[in-house]
Structure formats: structure tokens, C-alpha cells
Design a protein around this nucleic acid. Structure first.
Length: 150
DNA sequence: GCCAACGTTGGC
DNA sequence: GCCAACGTTGGC
């Protein structure tokens, strides 16, 4: 089982929005590195942090469970959709998605500034490669963060 | 809102 | 396949 970190702008989708729904489709990802993780590695039963970016309280807001493997994403085929991709086709889909289910909201967002101060978290992809929106988290990093979350 | 970092596009 | 130009992300 693997651990992930999923970035979202809470003005669009926040941990609260995810909590309201039984299942929530993580789609519209248009980055090849993130796509490869989704297509090849994201699996039913994995856990993920929800990270709030570009907002007042930047940081990790809670935990979700991943409830599907990587699936062919639907928006890419819809000409009406903002994320329509004319270069994609049903035989050769370019983009993938997966479903998540809310698990936990932390009482306080774990701030990026705190994460940056922890030597144990120096190697997080979040720190090293700021712009990746679906990224792996090691088991050690996961345990370190969850053991300090409330 | 600024701007640095970085991903993508497209001409050659 | 290089690389300049351009667009986007995301912290501050």
C-alpha cells in the first residue's frame, strides 16, 4: 500500500467539499508526471493527504482513502469541457483519474512552514518539487506527519 | 498581485 | 532534438 499527497486549491475543492460527498473523483490532472503516478501506481486502498495550496492556510488539511485504481479520465473526451484534449482518443487515452473518500479532517491544517522546518521531512517531494499535484509520500514521512496531526 | 520555478510548445 | 518563448503554479 502506498501513500500520496494531493494538491487542491480550497477555493475550488477543499477537504470540506470532499467530506460532503460519499465519493469524490480526482480528475482534470494534466501533468505527465502526475499522470504516470495515477496510471501506474495509485491503487485502491492507498491513503492520501489533502494539501491546500494558494490560500490563507497553506498545508495539509486531512486524509482521504483512495477507493479505485487509476481509471481513464472522462473530461478529456468531452469537447464542452475545459479540460477537453483533442489529442486524446478512446483507444489511446492520455489522462487518468481515481476516486477518493473522505477519512479525516485535521483540527488544524499542518502548515507548509512547519513541514519545511522538520529535518525528517526534508526529502518530501512537496519541498523538492513544489509543482507536482499528485505526489508520493514515504511511509516514514506519512507516520511522522500523522503522529503529529490532531 | 508579484515573481521565481518549472512545465509545455513549436520553430528550426 | 535543442532551446527560446510562453504559460502555469503556488508561496509569499
Amino acid at each position: 500500500m502506498s501513500y500520496w499527497l494531493l494538491k487542491t486549491e480550497p477555493d475550488e475543492y477543499s477537504i470540506d467539499d470532499i467530506a460532503k460527498l460519499d465519493t469524490f473523483c480526482w480528475d482534470e490532472i494534466r501533468n505527465y508526471q502526475a499522470r504516470n503516478f495515477i496510471r501506474d501506481q495509485v491503487s485502491q486502498g492507498d491513503l492520501a493527504f489533502i494539501y491546500h495550496s494558494s490560500c490563507k492556510q497553506v498545508g495539509i488539511a486531512g486524509v482521504v482513502e483512495i477507493i479505485t485504481n487509476g481509471c481513464i479520465e472522462q473530461a478529456q473526451f468531452n469537447p464542452q469541457h475545459a479540460k477537453f484534449d483533442p489529442k486524446s482518443s478512446q483507444d489511446k487515452p492520455k489522462w487518468y483519474s481515481f476516486d477518493i473518500r473522505f477519512k479525516q479532517k485535521f483540527n488544524q491544517v499542518i502548515p507548509l512552514s512547519w513541514i519545511k522546518q522538520q529535518p525528517e521531512l526534508n526529502d518530501m517531494v512537496l519541498i523538492k518539487q513544489g509543482r507536482l499535484s499528485v505526489q508520493p509520500v514515504s511511509e516514514q514521512q506519512w507516520q511522522f506527519i500523522t503522529s503529529r496531526a490532531k
